[in-house]
Design a protein around this nucleic acid. Structure first.
Lengths: 225, 225
DNA sequence: GTGCCTTTTTGACTCAGAGTCAATTATTGA
DNA sequence: TCAATAATTGACTCTGAGTCAAAAAGGCAC
């Protein structure tokens, strides 16, 4: 029925408006310092109505994150060259992550300040959404790593699943340091941009299949001992 | 005056008791799910008294963190071989971090769930304490890196301050992944212990002054570019 | 011991903000 | 126009952090 359709679209639009307003406020003041009343004011709704569209405050956060993730994965799919070597694909992933994150610092500051706490009270509904969102990505990552090991562009001395976790956890941690770390950078005269831009260079040796002899206990060539 | 001394000691002891109780509760239920009344009950005090010893709930968190840090640095100082090469010292740091963290997982789960939010509302008082706590460590880290670059045990193609931030941020991120990451490990059949135990092996190539012919075509001919 | 002063402890109170729900208002379809 | 349904409201409840005036305990001089 057409009327029902229009209603549906209107509802979607309302949801989007709410997410937009919440996002702006969370970025500006931090999730914890924004009240549901404020968000309601911003969209010219009453607080009660927010709870028709979203179960609670946490689910507003999830909506923002899910939207960001979708866009992130969409861009990445476009960028990826299926024919590149595994190692090259991983490097593309890191490059994209760095660029994307630099373009969304407000999001990242918000997400890495309140995110960990909200993840800790995640219920199954959001777990579901999150899992679905990252499913494709996980599959791709595993493929890329296996391909890279096979084609010799990625080191082969680590369990691929383990290697994948190092790459993703470390990359994410580096590109989205908490505001406290950022402050530390500044105090030491290191810019955030410099920090993320050089990450690729820093981590490359740990990705490549470089025949280094003896990872530990080597090179005491200097004045030690 | 002796009476004043005894009073002082008693006060210290009370503080410790409160921190102990809060720590236990935070580990078990998570910072956010513990009320000040519960903590008061646990130490058989009234809530009002807690606020004589601690400014607010956040400062209980800081007290726990500060104590943990002090112990961590104390152990590290004992372990460190001043005569080892820079690279070897960094490896000792990582090894110690891994072992210490494995022994304090409850602390880490708590700290990395609520920590980022609390850091974001840190006031100057705690900033001070934190800065003092990590001052020695930062100085040591810089020394170790410079020594390592000089003695050839650490790569010399990165700004030392930058390199230091990579090492510390990445190491900390890897040893204390949020509970959500840990869950991800499990689903993929990777144990947390396996994950942290192999970190050294993963990251070593990015530390060592290894002449790789990888994509970052850099061949440092001498000691500093 | 008694009275006086200081310190510690108490718990009822305030206040903020998330989430609820019965009542009100708007929309739709006949 | 009217009844049924859907959307919206805002006053309300509830929880928990932090406060503060009053009560209790501790110390001291006599």
């Amino acid at each position: 029925m057409i009327v029902a359709d229009r209603k549906q679209r209107k509802k979607e639009q309302r949801r989007t408006e709410i997410v937009d307003a919440a996002e702006k406020l969370f970025y500006k003041k931090g999730f914890d310092n924004v009240t549901m009343d404020e968000i309601a004011d911003a969209v010219e709704f009453s607080k009660g109505s927010l709870y028709v569209y979203f179960k609670n405050k946490d689910s507003l956060f999830f909506a923002i994150v899910a939207r960001m993730h979708r866009e992130y994965f969409r861009q990445f799919r476009e960028l990826l060259d299926e024919n590149a070597s595994g190692g090259e694909q991983i490097r593309t992933m890191i490059r994209h992550l760095v660029e994307y994150t630099k373009d969304h610092q407000e999001y990242n500051d918000m997400a890495c300040t309140i995110g960990p706490l909200i993840w800790s009270r995640m219920d199954t509904e959001y777990e579901q959404v999150l899992a679905e969102n990252s499913m494709d990505y996980n599959l791709w990552l595993n493929d890329a790593i296996n391909k890279g090991i096979a084609d010799g562009s990625i080191r082969n001395d680590l369990n691929p699943a383990l290697f994948g976790f190092y790459i993703s956890l470390i990359s994410i941690s580096v590109v989205s340091p908490s505001p406290l770390w950022k402050k530390g950078f500044e105090l030491a005269g290191v810019g955030y941009d410099e920090f993320v831009d050089n990450f690729q260079k820093f981590i490359d040796p740990s990705i490549n299949n470089c025949k280094t002899e003896g990872p530990t206990k080597k090179h005491p060539a200097g004045k030690s001992g």
